[in-house]
Design a protein around this nucleic acid. Structure first.
Lengths: 202, 202
DNA sequence: AGCGTAAGCAAGTAGGTACTTGCATACGCA
DNA sequence: TGCGTATGCAAGTACCTACTTGCTTACGCT
């Protein structure tokens, strides 16, 4: 059964490059170093293979987490955002195709959706416990969260296409978080942002 | 030569639905109500047709504009953002496919890029002339512009997929602008946002 | 030693793809 | 009336697509 994993992996790579229609069974078989027939014997059909690829992709991998109670918001949020940025960059091509096939293949959309809601929920929960947030309107909190996660997604998807429209890659997380906190009206984040030491959450 | 326009239009619709690979010449011909051969006689090849589609799409249509000098920033920015939101929503499927085909078909990426830079430049120029912006760091202005345009793009692309993650569609522009101004440190925008009367720029 | 299971290989099926060719038809213009 | 140009139609080419079938080889387990 070692082949199953090899095929899944190869299929993910080919799908990331060419999308559903472009990911031909022949290409996947070659990429996996496996006979094309094996592919059908293992997964039944191309559609089933792709479904397996997407579910496997969405379950695997560690998600960055925010602490239960805020201690150092700037630092904690920056680490969190940076972790998500790095994680999403790894699956960017896959995600791009999944999003564009949203109308044609709903299960692809599920994959595109999965990470986002989790991130937003975490942000909400974390932000709600910020002590400095007493007088901020709930609607503004929603807007801030939406804008931060849109910005994260936009950075991941847009930077390779137009790198000049984004902050230097190593400063991005810090800048976004700082702006996020200003939307929320959290004070004392007007100082220059600390240089980020890249950390990933396990 | 009336057929040329009909084919271009049909091709845009089919491409928006199915992407490059899925937009077969047969489908396009049927959608245009034209013989498939006519398509090749008019454009030479499928690739040439698609190139024509994208260039036609990026040149046509009116772009919302910001006034030279700010008078009522909240109102002007909200109208501007709302206009862009509506304009982008019309070409969303086309844009989604163009973005996902970024690696395979560079000219598709050009189309995806074109609107964005214009928007950012306009925002920059407008914002630079805001009188209340004296003590805001230039880097923060960049970040704010990046976040606003990412948010716009995120709203357009993400809302159909996960509508609950975004503000009510008629309030979105106002909320984004309000948050944008808070990032910039522009005061007196903490009041509840005025309900937006939908206006499009010619 | 015998057997089940996973895998490779060669070949084939039925259909789709971009694109071409040859010929018939219609319309506008001189 | 004649002619060029645009279009339709039928057929064909060469290739790719997902998927199947039949047969062979190899490994592991009892």
């Amino acid at each position: 059964m070692i082949n199953r994993a090899r095929i899944l992996d190869a299929a993910a790579r080919v799908y990331a490059k060419h999308g559903f229609r472009g990911a031909t069974t022949r290409l996947i078989a070659i990429e996996a170093g496996v006979n094309e027939v094996t592919l059908f014997r293992t997964f039944g059909s191309k559609a089933a293979l792709m479904h397996a690829v997407l579910t496997a992709q969405s379950t695997q991998g560690s998600t960055p987490i925010l602490p239960e109670t805020p201690v150092d918001p700037v630092k904690e949020l920056t680490t969190f955002v940076d972790g998500i940025l790095h994680k999403l960059r790894e699956v960017r091509p896959l995600l791009a195709h999944a999003m564009s096939e949203f109308d044609e293949r709903p299960d692809a959309a599920d994959f595109a959706r999965c990470g986002r809601t989790a991130t937003q929920q975490q942000l909400h929960q974390y932000v709600r416990r910020l002590p400095a947030l007493a007088h901020t309107e709930p609607a503004d909190v929603d807007t801030a969260v939406t804008m931060l996660s849109s910005t994260i997604m936009g950075d991941v998807m847009g930077r390779p296409m137009m790198p000049d429209s984004y902050p230097p890659i190593e400063e991005a997380a810090g800048r976004y978080v700082r702006a996020f906190l200003r939307i929320l009206g959290v004070p004392a984040v007007t100082a220059a942002p600390a240089r980020l030491s890249r950390t990933r959450t396990a």
